[in-house]
Design a protein around this nucleic acid. Structure first.
Length: 524
RNA sequence: GGCCCCUUCGUCUAGCGGUCUAGGACUCCGGCCUUUCACGCCGGCAACACGGGUUCGAGUCCCGUAGGGGUCACCA
């Protein structure tokens, strides 16, 4: 039975790089008919865990990455045979493990102060040798401990790491890996107050939760020897390891970090995506603190109206590929084809522009009904339609979205088309376009007046009929189509660019078109 | 600095000794189509980090160099 896990810290947001790691874990588990477990690294108890966890769990749910065991959906409890899945609730278990290591002679009580160890570290650095702790304050017997304690010292528990030999293990991504034990320090696993550190907790959890494959970011590669030491010391069998390359920032191979947003925003591709999202957020009065609303955070995409499938598909290809041409994968296909062997070793840099391209493809393929459903919340938040929607909302939105074709790349893009939602007398005009198409061409106003009359008396307001109408109008007046259609568009939509003119008029209907043309002529 | 890792177009990648005058995708730039925009279609720019080997033959194997990265916490 394959069991993988992802271990988020409750930080309040879901990082795009973290999602990629989680995705690979999830894919691997699903492929093998195994389980995917979520474990919460909340040993830093300062924050409100439930509150900080909620957006993360919501993010996973939205992305369709479901977990078999872990926190309950609302983040307040645990669900699964190995509960709890919060590290903060397992302190006792870790402390017992530390005791076990101590009893086995694989760890020792250490009475040094941080300053003393630091001093050793610095002098090693001065002398240009690599630091090895002197173990001067090591207590292996109770007598030694008593002496240190009499001096008012308190003990942490340190690993008694081997000082020779090599630690070898197989990594499913990187092949055979080896480290010199001598490079490893006597890491602290338990503090004086009894709380345990991450590496111990992590190893104990992986064992207790019966994790078979530890698939994680490469940052942890060099932590693996000490974890193997702990696991073996505790008598655990070792999981398989797979270390994934990290996700790099756009256009470089530095690790992607939410702290360097300023820098990313100078990247035109990144900025484009960011600005696009920002524009949508502004229209719906969404709070957009840079901390939680930016293209490094999953929430950004949800708020702007991206499709989870598009993001997942993009992330799948960040560091993994099937062959030289296949790019689109359904969930089923990715579960079928994914393999750790084909994960790249080099970091892959995050390219929001390409993600956007995937989004475009997925949006195009989305059935119209789903598109309508996606767009509704945006219109409601912008207060462009009623909530709940009236019964003519769906048919009308269907018409608009069909006419829009692939112009709407994310659901939030519907807000680029106020002309379908604004009252006729509330329509805003783009002054540049108005100037260029209405004021500047001398004949524009007269043509528009003439065509207005045609619209008024014509039988059908179907798009096809309107096209025929306009074409014959053009012929009669011996003009080029642009001479009438451009002023018409500005008059009716207030903008220089938009959807197909005939569909637009048809959707708006005759009365609205006539009123808008009148209003436009009046403001000349 | 020690240890470890990585290195094909701007980006994601294919390539596992000859089929590579290096393929695909995104971006970018032309052109066509066209009522604007978008789409679509056609075309274009653009890469094997460098230096040595090994070999009849190297993007593919080996060794160096350079560059980049990770890690060396009583953080996770």
């Amino acid at each position: 039975m394959v069991r993988t896990r992802f271990a988020p810290s409750p930080t309040g947001y879901l990082h795009i790089g973290g999602v990629r790691t989680a995705l690979f874990n999830w894919l691997f588990a699903r492929q093998h008919g195994g389980q995917f477990i979520l474990r919460i690294d909340d040993t830093d108890q300062q924050r409100n865990v439930v509150q900080a966890l909620q957006p993360i769990l919501a993010g996973f749910r939205w992305l369709g990455i479901d977990w078999d065991e872990g926190p309950t959906a609302d983040g307040t409890g645990s669900s699964g045979p190995h509960a709890p899945y919060f590290q903060s609730q397992r302190a006792r278990r870790y402390a017992d493990a530390a005791q076990q290591l101590l009893a086995a002679g694989l760890a020792y009580r250490d009475y040094s102060t941080p300053a003393e160890v630091q001093a050793e570290r610095e002098s090693a650095e001065r002398e240009k040798r690599s630091f090895v702790y002197s173990r001067n304050w090591m207590a292996e017997t109770d007598q030694q401990a008593t002496v240190f304690e009499a001096a008012g010292r308190t003990a942490v528990v340190r690993l008694k790491m081997p000082r020779e030999g090599k630690c070898q293990f197989r990594d499913l991504v990187r092949g055979e890996v080896e480290f010199d034990w001598a490079q490893e320090q006597d890491h602290v696993v338990q503090r004086a107050d009894g709380t345990c550190l991450y590496h111990l907790a992590s190893v104990v959890d992986d064992h207790d939760y019966e994790i078979t494959h530890v698939i994680r970011a490469v940052e942890h590669l060099s932590n693996t020897p000490r974890q193997i030491f702990i696991a073996q010391g505790l008598g655990f069998s070792l999981p398989e390891y797979a270390h994934l390359p990290y996700v790099a920032e756009p256009g470089s191979n530095n690790k992607l970090s939410k702290r360097k947003l300023e820098k990313y925003l100078k990247h035109h591709e990144f900025k484009k995506i960011s600005d696009h999202g920002q524009a949508i957020a502004d229209r719906i009065q969404l709070a957009t603190a840079a901390e939680t609303f930016n293209p490094v955070i999953v929430d950004f995409y949800r708020e702007v109206g991206y499709l989870a499938d598009a993001i997942i598909n993009y992330l799948l290809l960040l560091g993994w590929s099937l062959d030289d041409k296949t790019e689109e994968f359904s969930r089923t296909e990715m579960i079928e084809h994914f393999s750790l062997e084909r994960v790249n070793k080099a970091p892959a840099s995050f390219d929001p522009q390409k993600l956007f391209a995937f989004q475009g493809r997925y949006m195009l393929a989305l059935p119209i009904k789903q598109k309508v459903a996606m767009v509704v919340p945006f219109l409601q938040r912008a207060e462009w339609i009623d909530a709940p929607p009236t019964c003519d909302t769906a048919p009308r939105l269907t018409q608009i979205l069909e006419a829009a074709g692939d112009r709407i790349k994310t659901a939030g893009d519907i807000l680029d088309f106020p002309e379908f939602f604004a009252a006729d007398d509330q329509l805003e005009f783009d002054e540049k376009s108005f100037e260029k198409r209405m004021r500047k061409p001398a004949e524009a106003a007269d043509l528009l007046r003439d065509f207005r009359h045609c619209l008024e008396v014509t039988d059908s307001f179907e798009a096809a009929a309107l096209e025929t109408l306009l074409k014959s109008f053009v012929e009669e007046h011996a003009i080029k189509i642009g001479q009438i259609i451009h002023p018409l568009r500005v008059a009716i939509t207030g903008k220089g660019v938009g959807l197909g003119m005939f569909e637009t008029m048809s959707i708006l209907d005759r009365e609205a078109c006539l009123r808008r043309i009148d209003a436009a002529l009046a403001r000349l």
